Structures are given as C-alpha cells and as structure tokens.
Amino acid sequence: MLEGKVKWFNSEKGFGFIEVEGQDDVFVHFSAIQGEGFKTLEEGQAVSFEIVEGNRGPQAANVTKEA
C-alpha cells in the first residue's frame, strides 16, 4: 500500500488525483474508494491505496481514508 494526499477531487464528476511524494500524481475514480455511503475525498486528505494499470495508465485502487 502507498500513502498520499488528495490533490483535488471533483465529487460531481467522481474523480480526482492523489499526490505521492517522489512520484507522478495518481488518478482516482470514486468507485475505488472503500467504505459505505457517498464516496468522495477532500483536498489534502491523507489516503492509502494501491496502484493498478487502468485503460489510460496507472490509477488508484482500494483507496482508504486515513484517520
């Protein structure tokens, strides 16, 4: 699992990017966010995740919000 911070997330469109120190930003789709209820992320929020190869390159999977 990697750790990063949410760079930005558009809850209307359901996607955004996660910043990872020393690496390129990683695309995140709302469907990759773990948990119940409305799936969104806040700018600057700490998250842990895995990287998988998507249709358009690397993207986040199994995203969990850090306490």
Rank of each mutant, 00 (worst) to 15 (best):
K39T: 06
A32G: 11
S11M: 11
V28L: 06
I33Y: 03
E53M: 15
I18V: 05
G37I: 05
G22V: 03
E66H: 15
L2V: 12
E53S: 12
F15C: 04
E42D: 11
R56K: 13
E50I: 09
H29C: 04
F49P: 00
I33N: 02
N55Q: 13
V6Q: 01
G35N: 09
E42K: 13
Q34S: 11
H29Y: 06
V47R: 00
F27N: 02
E50L: 10
F15G: 02
N62Q: 09
F9G: 00
D24M: 13
K5I: 07
E21H: 14
L41K: 01
D24K: 12
V26Y: 05
G37D: 11
A60W: 01
E36I: 07
F38G: 07
Q34I: 14
F27W: 07
G57R: 09
A67R: 12
V52R: 11
V6F: 01
V63D: 01
D24A: 13
K65M: 12
T64R: 15
F9D: 00
I33L: 09
F38H: 13
L2M: 11
F27E: 02
A46S: 13
A46I: 12
E12N: 15
V20M: 12
K5G: 03
V26G: 00
S11N: 12
A32Y: 05
Q45P: 01
G14D: 01
I51A: 04
G57D: 03
D24P: 15
A61K: 10
N62Y: 09
F9Q: 01
V6D: 00
F30M: 06
R56S: 12
R56N: 09
E21R: 15
G54Y: 10
I18G: 00
Q34R: 12
E66W: 14
N62W: 11
Q45K: 06
V20H: 08
N10L: 08
I51E: 03
P58L: 10
A32I: 03
E50S: 10
K65R: 13
V52Y: 10
I18H: 00
M1S: 09
G16D: 00
K13M: 10
G35F: 09
N55R: 13
I33G: 02
Q45M: 12
V20P: 03
V20W: 10
K7T: 05
K39A: 07
T64Q: 15
L41N: 01
I33R: 01
Q59A: 10
G44N: 07
S11P: 14
V52G: 07
Q23S: 12
D25H: 06
V52W: 09
S31A: 09
F9L: 02
E19L: 14
G37E: 09
G22F: 10
V47Q: 00
E66G: 15
K13N: 07
I33M: 05
L2K: 14
G54F: 09
V63S: 01
G54L: 10
Q34H: 10
F17H: 04
W8P: 00
Q23D: 09
S11G: 13
V52C: 04
R56F: 15
A32S: 11
E53Y: 14
F30A: 08
Q59G: 04
G37T: 06
V26E: 01
D24G: 15
T40F: 12
K65P: 11
D25E: 06
L2R: 06
P58N: 09
I51G: 02
G37W: 06
F9S: 02
V63W: 00
A61H: 12
T64D: 08
I51F: 06
G57C: 04
G35E: 11
G4C: 02
E53P: 15
F9N: 00
V6W: 02
E43G: 13
V63T: 03
S31D: 04
V28K: 00
I33E: 02
K65A: 12
A61V: 10
V63M: 04
F15P: 00
N55C: 05
V20T: 08
Q23H: 15
G54D: 09
S31N: 07
R56Y: 15
E21N: 14
E19A: 15
K39M: 08
G37L: 05
V47I: 08
E50C: 05
F17S: 03
